[in-house]
Design a protein around this nucleic acid. Structure first.
Lengths: 187, 187
DNA sequence: AGTTAATTAGTACGTGCTACCAATGAGCAG
DNA sequence: CTGCTCATTGGTAGCACGTACTAATTAACT
């Protein structure tokens, strides 16, 4: 019986850590059927840090993301804003926004960008979406930057009608009309 | 000069860790101006685990989230599905879906749940949202479970008209109509 | 058989702790 | 002042999970 190739063991190592980040070298050794030293040599070769460092990196990344999300009620980056009138934001499509099988962004990212921009424009303590009409013009793919521009069309009492148009370069990829209801803080 | 109260030191400890999770006991000791033993006694008293355990917990939480997102093309949990006909999913509103200031879920979570459910129903390699009409009936708050039911209303060629109604208990909180365009793999 | 790459064994050391125990100091009641 | 108590500090032993290094063993192949 030929010995397993190093490459295939490396694959199994990566696979195992992919399923469970918190495996110690000794657990990996048992799992792969090799000595602990081999596991360590393997990790060195493919540049996988030790358990504690892996854990640390994941935790740090998570903290970064949590901060980004709780800091941003807005999906995308706000580039321009006149309260009660207009605004714009841009969003770069990254891998985690794609359908896994295809390099096409899931629709709700475009919706979220537009919706959060529309809400940001309404000058009120709390604004809720009441109704939306949405049109997806063409798929958006990895790496593209989506620029959304929003303007207030009409205001009736607490109800704002806002139109958002999202473009990649000069290409309209998405458009929507939102009815946003502003509520005072007591609401 | 009166010695600082233990309580206020505990506050400073919590504060310090809030700003930087990755402080070792010895760094904390320097920061708080006490010995390392005192830091450890303090941690015991207020139930803060050691650096590695804190890190581990944060990392573990992140993995839970990443899985929830990448494992599911569906937002929410799919509870029922008949391809080409109907389906349902449920989504529990957690803290990270809320506006920070208020316990109200952001609209795009409801949209995402409904949209992903609608796409799941269409029996095609790739399905894209072409158009959506969305109505938010009432705000949804922390801890509520949103059950979305979707049914195909009409199919014309590759275009599917799908209605989704989302309820909390018997209460309709959201409804939408989606035009979903099915594409074959070559598209 | 000789050479080479791969694997295993083993030791010393490092970090960041827990779990202890003993010593010191500060505040206060009797 | 004495005795008591709580808070703080110092120090040691041990543990988990490593790194870094050296040396021995095994397998594979010309």
């Amino acid at each position: 019986m030929a010995r397993e190739s190093k490459e295939s063991r490396h694959d199994r190592l990566r696979q195992a850590l992919n399923e469970d980040l918190f495996l110690t070298d000794s657990e990996l050794a048992r799992l792969l059927g090799v000595s602990i030293q081999t596991v360590r040599l393997d990790r060195m070769e493919i540049g996988i840090p030790e358990l504690r460092e892996r854990t640390r990196q994941v935790a740090a990344e998570r903290l970064r993301q949590v901060r980004a999300i709780s800091g941003a009620e807005i999906v995308g980056e706000l580039t321009h804003l006149v309260l009660g009138r207009e605004g714009s934001s841009s969003l770069r499509i990254t891998d985690d926004m794609l359908f896994t099988k295809r390099a096409i962004a899931r629709g709700h990212y475009l919706f979220s960008q537009a919706n959060s921009l529309a809400i940001a424009i309404v000058d009120a303590p709390v604004a809720l979406t009441g109704l939306a009409r949405v049109r997806y013009r063409r798929p958006v793919t990895r790496g593209e930057q989506v620029d959304a521009r929003a303007e207030v069309l009409r205001v009736v009492g607490s109800r704002h009608l806002i139109r958002v148009v999202s473009q990649v370069n000069e290409d309209v990829v998405f458009s929507a009309k939102f009815y946003i209801v502003a509520k005072d803080d007591a609401g």
